[in-house]
C-alpha cells in the first residue's frame, strides 16, 4: 500500500521541554488515521509538524515521500488543513474567503470560481455565499473551513479536532461530509478527544498520552485487545464492591475501581451480571465495551489539565 505520511522518531521540544517524545507512525493512502488523546498529549504539535507549521526538533516526517523540512512549499501545495481554532478571514465574505485562499495556491481565477461554487454546495453553504464570517454559526464556520481546506483538491487533509465545541446536529453533518470525502478516496489524518468521532471516522487510531503513542490499531482491535468485549459498571462503595468481587471469584474478568464506581471487563458479561444481581440488584450498567473504556484504561481516570 502507498504510504502517504510517515514519521520516524519524531521529537518536538519547546525550550528543551519535550512534548513529542520520539514517535513513529505511517498513514496509508485512502485511510483515515486518528490521534486520540487527552488535552496536552501532543496531538496538535504532531499535526503541526506534518503540515510544515512547527519546525521538527529531531527525527523526520515525509508526506507523499517529500521531507517536510526540505520541501514545505511542495508539501503544502498538496495538502488541506483544518485547524483546531477557526481562522477564517473576518474581513471577507464566505465567497471571498475561498477565492482569496485559492489565490494562495496559485489557482487561476476561473478555475477557482467553479471550485468555490462546488465546494459551497458540498458543505451546504451556497445560500450564505455573501455573508460575513461574523454571522455564521459555529457549525457553518467549521463547514466553511472544510470547504477551504479542499480548495486545492488535496489528496491528504489534516484535521485538528474537527468538531470541537459543536452541537450534535452540526457534528453529525460534519461527520457525514468527512465520510463522503473518505469514500471519494481522500486520505485523512485527524486528532480528537471525542471517542465517538474516532469510532465513527477512523480506520486506525494512535492513542497518545504525554507525547507518546501508547497503543495503535483499529478501534475494534483496540477494544478487544485492551478491555475485552463487555463492561459492567456498578455504583458501589468500597466494602460492597469487595463483597461483589468476592462473589465472582470463579469467573474470568479484570476490574478497576474509580471513585464511586466499580468497572468489570469481561467476555462473559451476561453470566457475571446474573451472579451480581444475587447480591445487588440496582445501579448496574451492562454494556458493550467502547473506545472510551480503552482510553480511560490506558490514559488513566484522573483529570488532565
Amino acid at each position: 500500500m502507498d504510504v502517504v505520511v510517515e514519521a520516524r522518531n519524531l521529537v518536538k521540544e519547546y525550550n528543551s521541554h519535550r512534548v513529542v517524545k520520539g514517535i513513529n507512525f505511517s498513514v496509508c493512502k485512502g485511510e483515515c488515521f486518528g490521534f486520540l488523546g487527552p488535552n496536552g498529549a501532543g496531538k496538535t504539535t504532531t499535526m503541526s509538524m506534518i503540515i510544515c507549521y512547527t519546525p521538527i526538533t529531531k527525527g523526520n516526517v515525509t508526506v507523499f515521500g517529500l521531507d517536510v523540512g526540505r520541501y514545505p512549499k511542495k508539501v503544502k501545495q498538496k495538502i488541506g488543513v483544518i485547524p483546531q481554532e477557526t481562522n477564517l478571514d473576518p474581513d471577507l465574505t464566505v465567497f471571498e474567503n475561498l477565492m482569496v485562499y485559492a489565490r494562495y495556491f496559485n489557482i487561476p481565477k476561473k478555475v477557482a470560481r467553479n471550485r468555490v461554487k462546488e465546494l459551497l454546495s458540498f458543505v451546504q453553504l451556497s445560500d450564505k455565499r455573501d455573508e460575513v464570517i461574523l454571522r455564521l454559526s459555529g457549525g457553518m464556520k467549521r463547514r466553511l473551513l472544510i470547504a477551504r481546506s479542499l480548495i486545492n483538491d488535496p489528496e491528504l487533509i489534516i484535521l485538528d479536532e474537527p468538531t470541537i465545541g459543536l452541537d450534535p446536529q452540526a457534528r453529525h453533518l460534519i461527520w457525514q461530509k468527512l465520510r463522503q470525502l473518505k469514500a471519494h478516496g481522500t486520505t485523512m489524518v485527524l486528532s480528537t478527544h471525542y471517542m465517538e468521532e474516532a469510532a465513527q471516522l477512523c480506520d486506525r487510531l494512535a492513542i497518545m498520552d504525554q507525547g507518546q503513542i501508547i497503543a495503535e490499531g483499529s478501534p475494534n482491535h483496540l477494544i478487544t485487545e485492551f478491555v475485552g468485549t463487555e463492561v459492567i459498571e456498578i455504583r458501589s462503595d468500597g466494602q460492597e464492591s469487595n463483597y461483589i468481587l468476592d462473589s465472582l471469584k470463579e469467573h474470568q474478568f479484570s476490574f478497576e475501581r474509580a471513585a464511586d464506581t466499580l468497572f468489570l471487563y469481561s467476555r462473559e458479561g451476561g453470566r457475571l451480571v446474573q451472579k451480581i444481581k444475587e447480591v445487588k440488584d440496582e445501579r448496574i450498567i451492562y454494556r458493550p465495551a467502547t473506545l472510551e473504556d480503552v482510553f480511560l484504561k490506558l490514559t488513566g481516570r484522573e483529570l488532565k489539565e
Binding site: 507549521y53 503544502k76 481554532e85 494562495y104
Partner: peptide, 11 residues
C-alpha cells in the same frame, strides 16, 4: 484574527 496562521499552511 489569526490571518497569518491561516495563510502559512498554504504554499
Amino acid at each position: 484574527q489569526r490571518t497569518y496562521d491561516a495563510i502559512i499552511v498554504t504554499p
